[in-house]
Design a protein around this nucleic acid. Structure first.
Lengths: 205, 205
DNA sequence: CTTGCCCCATACGCAAGCGTATGGATAGAC
DNA sequence: GTCTATCCATACGCTTGCGTATGGGGCAAG
């Protein structure tokens, strides 16, 4: 009931500040929790401010989703862009995935609202882009197209599942050294350096 | 806007019918979409009926979650209960996980509402139970405690991630023979029959 | 100092949903 | 046939949030 600490309204608000606040709300309380008046209270202003910056609630959600997509796209290159070795690219991607807790919550919360048509396209683009990146990594490792697609999907599913576990049952996700072991195991299994013997993943070299 | 086809109100409604309708709504439109009056319209009755069967909206959600937990618990034993081979237990679990589309949507939708304190405990129990089951499977395969915990988490994460992918980007999830190949790959990788060489998963025998 | 623009507060009408109060209908008990 | 319990409809007040209308304060230009 107590509306936390309303931030200082110091300067004039920007549309980006509203979008960022919307993303924060999504990460905390889910997509449907994004409401104009509660957000205004959080920002220390009233609706009057909001409806000057935005046409309506949908416009805010669109802006927030665009901001999110941009941030996600920037991250995927900024964090592991200048890495030539495809193996290390996957490793870095894996560690980055478990690094930002907020980013994970954001994805899960936004993806959970995929029934809204507007959300769907954003989630699709972000997911496809990430899996495409993984696909190219496996291709660079020498995997065939079909095999790389399977392994990319596999690895991405594991990313997503770890996010889910970390959110829903954090006590089942280890910390410290044990977590490092866990990550090492997944990396070792999900990035086969030697050729699988027969029917599956193609021999890289 | 058109409220679909209101079902025939034929007989008297039961509390279970309301709970089931709530679960259906959760699977379709998310946890927050469970509202008394829309549900009543769907069932071809009015609020008067609801508030005879339930104290309030929270009671309905609680009943729905209990029904869900019970169904999930029944499934995990009913589908793969009488299977002696732990390897085949994991295989069956894997295939069952990708079998029921609705069950997957339900889990994701409920888990996405983990900010509500009531939901959290249900999701935790269901998740812990499933991972515990996997843990015991890996133990039965000869894995050490630490190793089985890692592999169980790994496998469960992959389950969850595949659910997520199937919901968010279904076009990236193959069908038919290619899907079978994909499942076969994951099973092969996630259930190592031979001992990993050195530092990780313990030799089963 | 006045003018204009940017940013926001206030006040209003409207819709949806929760919970309550109360009455009606139906069916079995007797 | 009356009575009672079960199940539901109707009507009401209340709250929350959306969107609009309108005005006001601050600030720079002139």
């Amino acid at each position: 009931m107590s509306p936390a600490a309303p931030v200082e309204p110091k300067q004039s608000l920007t549309a980006d500040a509203w979008a960022e606040a919307a993303l924060e709300m999504i990460a905390q309380s889910g997509f449907d929790a994004v409401a104009v008046e509660p957000l205004a209270r959080r920002l220390g202003v009233t609706k009057g401010s909001f409806y000057w910056h935005f046409e309506n609630r949908d416009a805010l959600l669109r802006a927030a989703l665009e901001r999110w997509e941009r941030a996600e796209t920037d991250d995927i290159v900024a964090r592991i862009g200048p890495e030539p070795d495809p193996y290390q690219r996957i490793v870095k991607l894996f560690k980055a995935a478990n690094a930002s807790y907020r980013a994970g919550r954001l994805y899960l919360a936004i993806a959970a609202a995929e029934d809204k048509p507007m959300v769907q396209s954003f989630v699709r683009r972000v997911s496809e882009r990430r899996m495409q990146y993984l696909f190219e990594c496996y291709r660079a490792l020498g995997f065939s197209e079909a095999s790389a697609a399977h392994w990319a999907r596999f690895a991405y599913a594991t990313f997503m599942g770890n996010l889910q576990i970390g959110r829903d049952t954090p006590e089942l996700m280890p910390t410290g050294a044990e977590f490092s072991e866990y990550v090492k195991l997944m990396i070792k299994v999900l990035i086969p350096r030697e050729a699988p013997p027969d029917d599956d993943g193609d021999p890289p070299a």
